[in-house]
Design a protein around this nucleic acid. Structure first.
Length: 473
DNA sequence: TGAAATGTTGGGGCG
DNA sequence: ACGCCCCAACATTTC
């Protein structure tokens, strides 16, 4: 007699039905499937913008499950306790999920799996968040890659299985367990004033993600290699927001990129490389989890970065009033849209850690609080890369000059003028939205004069190089 | 997916 | 015709 007890499908950062190995396995088991999501301490510990965006993603997932005659059951509390409750209420005999790799999720999932197995439950984790499992890609000496380029060479010609179709049907249980109401969770509460503005810049859900990929492949990918560096143009795929919540799978992106490359679209390979940077970040987080907390190169522990968040330099950086237009424009773009162009991320990170001599953790935390596309691995690698403390990092003496960068990547000044209001007679709506989104206590107004640089570009560079010169490591 | 300082080359103006 | 200088353009080195 075959087991007809329900399978609990535990969703986390895989808010899709297509190319979803765990969901496919649950559906193919021939048993009823109960999709679930928990607002647990791992989610609780994340930033305001990520939780705000997660709520939107859950709404969309709920709707697409409903179209299949299924539901998303929501519970709040410790994941294991919630699972045990649901198992008791529904008689479920199995729990499936897609693996995550950040330390907080991994600690939780390891404990959950052990406890459930102890209970006699079939607890199973599947791939889905990455192209390659971190333990499957090895250097010739059997370690993990600590440098990007060799990793790219090792994986670029790998066979990657085709994406799985969405399940035809998701069998419902005879009766549904109780669910919280998503709105009762108030996941967006900490967004305060900015929520509605950021909402207008989000592209949410699996089908929106698929059209985004489609239009990028059709119109954007050919010029990606150069256009991706120009923050005033729509030259990137913009898919980070969807990838981080799993509204699209990296595998779907990979195959779309490969097809574009075969069609001779020259930017395709550059884009595929970016997908592998995401893998690289996750593999590093898996193998060296402390990368999200402390200097990956421990000798950097001796570097005299400022760690006090209250100093005026940090305040100016966070509030987008350093007096450096490229930096301020970027910080404001993040506040208004929940995202920031990659070129701009490198510039603000260089300015914070080098010109302002502030610890990269301050920047990492601020990004985690404000990015709707926040990704635990990419954020950690990005900051440590910029600061010089990370694997395959930019050397410390590579200091971005935010003025020179303007001439190279925002020659028309369209980017800075679209995000800065002060000093412009006819500021853009987006630039004005910033003043609606920020806390009133910041006391900023579009009619203020644009500030003088808090640290001049040449002086900051000299000071940073001097600190590096005098390092005792 | 750096910037700035320093070094090298070569064309053109000029006496 | 030739040497000299200037300087832009490019290359290399250094931080």
């Amino acid at each position: 007699m075959t087991d007809k007890s329900p399978v609990l499908m535990w969703f986390r950062r895989d808010l899709r039905l297509g190319d979803h190995p765990a969901l496919t396995a649950a559906c193919e088991s021939g048993r009823p499937v109960i999709p679930i999501f928990f607002y647990d301490e791992v989610v609780q510990g994340q930033g305001a913008a990520p939780r705000f965006r997660l709520e939107l993603g859950l709404e969309a997932l709920s709707e697409s499950l409903a179209r299949k005659g299924s539901r998303l059951i929501l519970r709040r509390g410790d994941a294991l306790a919630c699972l045990r409750d649901l198992i008791e209420e529904t008689g479920a005999g199995a729990v499936y999920w897609s693996r995550l790799y950040d330390p907080a999720s991994k600690d939780r999932d390891t404990k959950v799996k052990a406890a459930l197995k102890e209970d006699g439950i079939d607890a199973r984790s599947f791939s889905g968040h990455l192209l390659f499992e971190p333990w499957e890609v090895e250097t010739k000496t059997g370690g993990f890659y600590k440098v990007y380029t060799p990793m790219w060479r090792a994986v670029k010609d790998a066979e990657i299985a085709e994406a799985l179709p969405s399940p035809q049907r998701i069998s419902a249980p005879q009766s549904w367990p109780a669910s919280d109401a998503l709105s009762d969770w108030s996941m967006a509460r900490d967004m305060q004033r900015g929520a509605e503005i950021v909402r207008g810049h989000c592209t949410v859900g699996e089908s929106a993600a698929a059209s985004r990929l489609g239009s990028f492949i059709a119109h954007g990918i050919a010029d990606y290699a150069d256009a991706r560096n120009l923050p005033a143009t729509n030259g990137t795929s913009n898919l980070s927001e969807n990838l981080t919540y799993g509204e699209i799978s990296p595998r779907t992106c990979w195959h779309a990129g490969m097809r574009a490359r075969e069609e001779g679209k020259s930017g395709a390979e550059t884009w595929l490389k970016e997908l592998v940077w995401r893998e690289f970040a996750y593999h590093l987080v898996h193998h060296t989890p402390r990368i999200v907390e402390t200097n990956w190169r421990e000798e950097w522990d001796a570097f005299p970065w400022n760690t006090d968040e209250r100093v005026k330099e940090v305040k100016a950086w966070k509030q987008g009033r350093t007096g450096i237009p490229f930096v301020d424009a970027a910080m404001r773009e993040m506040y208004v849209t929940g995202r920031m162009h990659n070129r701009a991320r490198m510039i603000v990170a260089s300015y914070l850690t080098k010109h302002l001599l502030c610890h990269w953790r301050i920047g990492l935390d601020w990004f985690e609080e404000h990015l709707i596309d926040w990704d635990p691995a990419s954020n950690a690698l990005g900051w440590q890369w910029s600061a010089g403390s990370g694997p395959d990092a930019t050397p410390y003496f590579r200091v971005f000059n935010p003025i020179t960068q303007l001439d190279k990547f925002d020659k028309s000044r369209d980017y800075i003028s679209s995000w800065i209001a002060e000093g412009y007679s006819d500021p853009s709506q987006a630039a004005l939205d910033y003043f609606e989104a920020i806390p009133k206590q910041w006391s900023m107004s579009a009619s203020d004069p644009y500030p003088d640089p808090i640290v001049a570009v040449d002086e900051g560079r000299r000071r940073a190089l001097n600190a590096y010169e005098n390092r005792d490591f």
